[in-house]
Design a protein around this nucleic acid. Structure first.
Lengths: 122, 122
DNA sequence: CTTAATGTTCAATGATCCTTGAACTAATGA
DNA sequence: TCATTAGTTCAAGGATCATTGAACATTAAG
């Protein structure tokens, strides 16, 4: 059964929920890395440095329910992508400023992080 | 005793703490109104529409501890101001995009709110 | 001095959060 | 078929959150 996960439609994405979802270091680290990874999807397994399988599953669900990421099952994996354009249309500029801010302040922002396209730079 | 309240210095303002503090409808409403009020300080009493005295005191403390607002005692009142320039220097563009986003989505954004200078417009 | 105005502090309460480990499901591969 | 990979679900736990009412502190005003 092609079991699609529930995602809020763009017009239902709420600012307090988004802020709450991002107000956690683990989830902030996840979206920062997703952003730095450009359009390429990532899997839950790529975030195990930040917690147990259970913890990552929990945080990914929070991000999905808030409307920040999209999760698509593929085989036994889940492909995670930022809902960049949805967030941009709903809260213009918001995500980019958050991503840019994480660069300066995140403890998880270690040198061994995957460096990819610069954020905010399309 | 000129009892000053503790405020984090600008370099200690942390993104997760700021996001968490803003991830609450009452606090979001408070900062949205403060922003629309320009440079003018406001008092706790002006936010009693959003909760009891105790509740407002609690939320104001959260905003202060996160580094989002500055609180200065004056007489029996507290004068609240947004730490606009501190936030701008630490997380460029962030506060403005949040304020702008509240305009579209806040339930507290009722027609009987004090309309003042546009936000983001200095 | 007395009263009113403006907030703070405290203890209690119920709700929500984040983590953990064990058990589980679903898809892949030998 | 059997084992592996990838992730979910569940119940339990401790922590933090947001609200309330009562009591309190401080300043201002009469």
């Amino acid at each position: 059964m092609t079991d699609y996960l529930p995602h809020p439609p763009v017009e239902y994405i709420a600012l307090p929920a988004v802020l709450t979802a991002l107000g956690d270091e683990t989830r902030l680290a996840i979206i920062a890395i997703l952003a730095r990874n450009g359009e390429r999807a990532m899997t839950c397994g790529q975030f195990l440095q930040f917690g147990s399988k259970t913890a990552i599953s929990y945080h990914v669900a929070k991000l999905r329910e808030a409307g920040i990421i999209h999760v698509r099952p593929e085989g036994t994996k889940r492909l995670l992508t930022l809902r960049r354009s949805d967030l941009e249309s709903r809260f213009p500029g918001f995500l980019d400023t958050v991503i840019a801010s994480t660069a300066a302040t995140l403890p998880y922002n270690s040198p061994d992080m995957p460096e990819a396209a610069q954020f905010a730079g399309e």
